[in-house]
Each structure stands twice: as C-alpha cells, then as structure tokens.
Amino acid sequence: MTTTPDQAPLAIPGFTHLYSGKVRDLYVPDGREDELLLVASDRISAFDFALEPPIPDKGAVLTQLSLWWFEQLEDIVPNHVLSTEVPEVVAGRAVLVKRLDMVPVECVARAYLTGGGLREYAVSGTVSGLELPEGLVDGDRFDWPIFTPSTKAPEGEHDEPMSFEAVEEAVGAGLAADLRDLTTRILARGNEIAAERGILIADTKVEFGRDADGTLVLADEVLTPDSSRFWPADQWEPGHPQPSFDKEFVREWLMSAESGWDKASGEAPPPLPERVVEQTRAKYVEAYERLTGRTF
C-alpha cells in the first residue's frame, strides 16, 4: 500500500532532497553532510496513510510549537535544532538540525490510559508488557507516566508494542534506561506546564538520536498535536473517550459511518471533508495558542 505522498518534493536551491515521509521532508545542505533541513509539510497522516487534502498551516504550527517546547525542556535533554534561519520558501515550517544516528525505537510515554494502551490492557491487563492494576478505565491517570515503547516499522507497516526487555535487547540496558527516563520526564514536564494552560497531555511519542559525541539528543518534533493526545482539562472525566485538540478528531471521522471507510480493507481512506479540515486546523491552532500564550 502507498503511504508516502505522491507530489514531487519542493526544489530548494542549495539543498538536496533526501527523503519524504508521510508528514516531513528532509534535505541535506550542499557541502554540509552533518546537517539536515527538516521541513514540516501540511500533510496529515492517520492509520499509516497520508491523507488528502492537507491541513492549512499545520506544518508551521507543529514547527513553532516544537521550538517552544524544546526551550521548556532544555534542562532535561539537549535537542537537535541548530538554526531557524532557513530558505524563505519554507520559512516558519522548517529548521536546520544536527544529523543524528537515530535510535531504532519509538519512545512512547503515557500519563493516562487510553487508545492502543487501553485496548491492550482490556485484553491482557498490560501495556507493552507492563502489568497495571486491575479495574482501570478509559482516561484514568497514572501516578507517573509509564514507558510503552514500540518498534519503528518500515514505511507502510505498523509499529508494534515492545516490552522494556525487548528495548534492552535492541539497544542495550544503559541506553534503554536513559530512553525510559527521558521519555517519561518529558511527558511529566509537559503536563506540569500544559495543565496550567487547561490542557492534559494523555500520551506522547518522541524520537532520540546520538550526535557525533555520542550524546543522546531529542529529535524530530515534541509534544505536538501530531505526536501527542491533548485533552481539555476542564472536560476530563475517566470512563469514556475524552474530547481532543489533536488528530484524534481526524481518526474518529475516518472510523465513523459517514466516511464509509473500512480500516481493515487495506484501501486508502477517502478525502477529508472541508469541515473536518477546517476544524482540525482550528484545533491545532487553539492548542498552540493555549500552550504558548502566543497568537498564531
């Protein structure tokens, strides 16, 4: 199945296109192999498909929000950003970053039980092999975020939950412990800050790489509506799904009778209706403005 976008990558003078994922495009600056230009597109993905049409301004919202969060997290972990001085054609939605040796694990932390974690818990009482107390319901909060990593599947395949022991086997005990510590601390710090602004961050996915010195560095994006579940704090009520500020809204439409799409069919989802596109943009912008206190 095709999950990457069909359109040709943007031609940027002084940069060579390296790779396009479902959402981001990577370029190498001419003559600087140790750097990358990371461009966030307006594409949106769900269930491992790139969807149509794109969400206006999404790339800029995610880039600016990640930059804001990187500043809030600097005392916990260094990040990959070198400069926001980028070519005018991608201004506002691109950053120049260190080229890293990426860790082959999707680092997921959960502060609340929901989504895929809830589905696994309902069957086995565990999440990523971690045993949890009995009787938990959708939306219950953990005392401290739990680390529930997953595999980094090849393009077009699904990530699968990993136990902590599997992460230790993949990357070594020391690095596995560092990944668990940093991922859960990032989510805990994120919730300290977000809760004061009326948002709960249910879970998040972060990526790490090592720089030339071997230092573990936070990469890609962090605590955005694409990589995290954002809930309005004043509507939090365990026992049922929560309203959201993130792309869960898009997933819910795709799974609704209105979309007519069968997730199990293997076929690409239908185009998003204009109202879903507009409401998704509004949710992303509202999350950005609530968290940063800035007007987008």
Rank of each mutant, 00 (worst) to 15 (best):
N191K: 13
P133L: 13
K58N: 07
L37H: 04
G31M: 01
G139M: 08
P9L: 07
E88H: 14
L38Y: 13
A46H: 13
V285H: 14
E71W: 14
F70S: 03
G190D: 11
E33D: 05
V61D: 03
R189F: 08
A257T: 08
R99E: 00
Y284S: 13
E134C: 02
G174A: 13
T16L: 03
I146S: 01
G115S: 12
V206G: 10
D178Y: 11
E157F: 15
L62G: 00
F70I: 06
I201L: 12
P270Q: 08
D143V: 07
A153P: 02
K205C: 11
F249D: 01
A268G: 04
I199E: 05
P5C: 04
K247H: 01
P270Y: 14
G92D: 14
E286Y: 01
K152A: 06
R119Y: 04
P9T: 07
V137L: 03
G209W: 00
Q279R: 14
L36H: 07
P243Y: 12
D138G: 02
E207G: 04
D75R: 15
E33R: 11
L37W: 04
D75K: 15
A111E: 09
F249H: 09
Y121I: 07
W261A: 03
E88F: 12
A212W: 07
Y19P: 00
P243K: 09
I193T: 08
A287E: 12
D213K: 14
E71I: 12
R251M: 02
E160N: 11
N191I: 12
P270F: 14
G135Y: 00
R119S: 04
I201A: 06
E207S: 05
E192L: 10
Q235K: 13
A194R: 14
A195V: 10
L73I: 15
R189C: 09
R210Y: 14
V90R: 14
L272I: 00
M255V: 02
R281I: 03
E237M: 13
E85C: 05
V127I: 15
E71D: 10
V89L: 09
L37N: 03
W68A: 06
Y19S: 04
V108N: 08
A202V: 11
L73K: 13
G174Y: 11
L175H: 11
G172L: 01
G239E: 03
F15E: 00
E267V: 08
G139L: 10
M1V: 11
V90L: 12
N79D: 08
V167S: 02
V77E: 02
Y288N: 01
D262C: 01
A212S: 06
G156C: 10
G135S: 04
E157A: 13
S66N: 02
V97G: 01
E252S: 05
F70L: 05
